[in-house]
């Protein structure tokens, strides 16, 4: 089952409902890439609140998605990482420097709005 992607103004929101298998991850990446291009989205928000485990595979996948998005000019924010999952990710020492996070959707949208304003102001 493909991950549902919503369009909210200049942004796309993808809510991961359950653990994704490899093919679903690739599908998500391609779906997002496609839509970013189509709608000229400025940012994407990936909600991982439903994931009870984020291992290196998921982290790699999210990073790939963020890269792909960036190539098309969009920023990626991950929201909804659960407390115990955050602890595991940190203890595992995943490489997470690239990862932009926010607590939830509302926060992420506020961040994206500020970012868009700044970019526009700086003559984007």
């Amino acid at each position: 089952m493909p991950v549902p992607i919503l369009k909210q103004g200049d942004y796309l929101i993808a809510s991961i409902q359950s653990a994704l298998i490899d093919s679903e991850v690739l599908e998500l990446r391609d779906d997002l890439a496609d839509r970013i291009g189509r709608y000229r989205s400025q940012g994407i928000i990936i909600d991982v609140a439903a994931l009870d485990v984020i291992d290196s595979f998921v982290a790699r996948s999210l990073r790939n998605i963020a890269r792909t998005a960036r190539l098309r000019g969009a920023v990626t924010i991950i929201v909804g990482i659960q407390p115990d999952v955050a602890v595991a990710m940190v203890q595992f020492r995943l490489n997470l420097e690239w990862l932009q996070t926010a607590l939830d959707l509302e926060e992420a949208l506020a961040m994206l709005d500020r970012h868009t304003r700044e970019r526009d102001r700086d003559g984007g």
């Binding site: 485990v53 984020i54 291992d55 115990d84 602890v87 595991a88």
Partner: peptide
């Protein structure tokens, strides 16, 4: 719960 997540990971 935290330990269970570490184990699952």
């Amino acid at each position: 719960r935290t330990d269970a997540t570490l184990i699952a990971t």
